[in-house]
Design a binder for these strands. Structure first.
Lengths: 303, 303
DNA sequence: CTCGACGATCGGATAATCTGATCGTCGATG
DNA sequence: CATCGACGATCAGATTATCCGATCGTCGAG
């Protein structure tokens, strides 16, 4: 008789292609993993995995079984989620992924309110870039993500939260720090400081400055937005800073922030989740709350 | 952690609406059933079933969970079936339902061949009328059914096996037993003997004799085709006998069988299975074998 | 009021599963 | 060529989960 355990272990093994790591994912030891997989193979009468040195491989017959097993595991998780929904909105565990250029600035704006309004929610936060978030959403390792649009995956549903305009951040003593609205076209590429490759914010900034290649950019990308801003403050160049950073309380006397001329470059921040998830209501409630917090932070930024 | 056991038990309970009978379906005792259901309810934090005297009821929240649970249970069974398919065709357990006007005549024609060609097949046979067969197919209690077309269920797939013409069976000493092809229109309703209500063969016979109502039929329906034929032999009337019965070796000196004038009344015997089943190949192989046996029995009938 | 049907509950037995230790094998490395 | 490290297999013993059989409590029918 095939059990959920067999299927869960198999899915983990297919994801990691490694008995030890799969076992870890399932919070068991490697012998337990080995035993269950072998039992499943025996029951089905099929070799599901090829044991080889280095990385193991799922056999071609195994692939189909894995696909179905993953669907079953997801369905059962959906049943559990559905049940929790009946308990009320935003109750129980919620795995939330956020891109690194949003997390440190948005969370301070929202977490207190979230905790106050939904005390029974148990958020588990994860911070990675868009690519990983999308993969983890699909795999069901996170329930919902906060990232920048566009998200071009038909299996995901999105909910726009707010428009995050970019501001031009310049050192206060920079001769380029002219007053009045900035113009993206006037930014000299060799002065533009950006995050390292893989951050969507980097791509967006490049797009808005109409720079196709990063060939003649100032430096290799920085690891965090804070680092970039430190570099700006130290006079190494300029950057496009999301208004979100300002609303989160960023204020450095060495940096001048100027809005762009309309149409201002901006990114659209949104929630994304598996369309098949039964927790739509949770996500929509979360979305409303985030949008509300974003708006509430407007005054603070203006001040 | 929700297990397959929880889901299987829940589905059984939803089907039977009775702890004892559900337990029986799952081959466990009633306390085991009670414990698992209660555990599931506790895990999900939802009352799934209303314990009442007489028949229990699934709560409205429970209905949705049951629906999903049934889907999961079916998916897992499909995984097992899929795995068996890889072993070769017609291997392992196969639950086959057959209508009562086919089973006793078709089985002798096929079983020996089936057993010879597919020795590893473990057929589990069930004989009931079309309505039950369709329900059991849908519920997954049987894998495939042999019945008469038409089957008007979009979720089922069918494969026509052979056309089973009706013969007019008359007592040998009946004055109506004229030579030559018979004509359905000449059958006197009060002489027509039929099976009891619920058998598709009865409806087909009525349709072919252009008798809308059964108001002025000879008697209350009989329980089995053999009974009807005994009555014919005894001179109580006539009946429409499927050629299948003849091919199975039926031969009674007291009964004369005559073909009908073309277009002869007939029924189309077919296989039916859940379209979602991964065992199509099994069913098609079974279909080929049955058709072959039907054709092979032609000579015997003519002899 | 008594009885029967039904689901809940309990104690002891059993089977499934896990852990921790250890082994064997293969590829890389010096 | 010997050694080492990574990895999965295997085994014994401990731990849980699950089941069964017996029994109880409750409700409705007669």
């Amino acid at each position: 008789m095939v059990t959920m355990r067999h299927l869960r272990y198999l899915v983990a093994l297919a994801e990691t292609r490694h008995f030890g790591r799969a076992a870890e994912l399932c919070h068991v030891t490697q012998p337990a993993m080995s035993a269950q997989i072998r039992e499943l193979e025996e029951m089905l009468g099929i070799d599901l995995v090829e044991r080889r040195r280095g990385a193991i491989a799922i056999t071609s017959e195994g692939e189909e079984i894995v696909r179905r097993a993953a669907a079953v595991v997801a369905s059962v998780r959906d049943i559990e989620d559905l049940a929790r929904q009946r308990q009320g909105v935003l109750v129980g565990p919620l795995a939330l992924g956020i891109i690194p250029t949003v997390a440190p600035y948005l969370l301070p704006l929202c977490l207190a309110t979230l905790r106050a309004r939904h005390p029974r929610l148990e958020p588990r936060l994860r911070e990675t870039r868009t690519t990983s978030l999308l993969a983890e959403l699909a795999a069901g390792r996170i329930d919902v993500a906060i990232l920048a649009l566009p998200v071009d995956r038909p299996e995901l549903e999105t909910l726009a939260l707010f428009t995050d305009r970019f501001l031009l951040a310049t050192a206060a003593d920079d001769p380029d720090a002219a007053a009045g609205p900035a113009d993206a076209a006037t930014i000299r590429p060799e002065r533009l400081l950006l995050l390292e490759d893989g951050h969507c914010l980097r791509e967006q900034a490049l797009a808005h400055c109409r720079l196709a290649s990063a060939a003649n950019l100032a430096t290799l990308g920085a690891t965090s937005l804070t680092t970039v801003l430190q570099m700006v403050a130290a006079g190494y160049g300029v950057t496009l800073m999301p208004e979100l950073v300002a609303r989160a309380g960023f204020d450095d006397p060495r940096i001048v922030l100027r809005p762009f001329r309309e149409p201002a470059p901006a990114r659209e921040i949104a929630l994304a989740w598996r369309a098949a998830s039964p927790r739509r209501k949770d996500f929509q409630a979360l979305g409303r709350l985030v949008t509300e917090c974003w708006k509430a932070a407007d005054g603070r930024a203006a001040a």
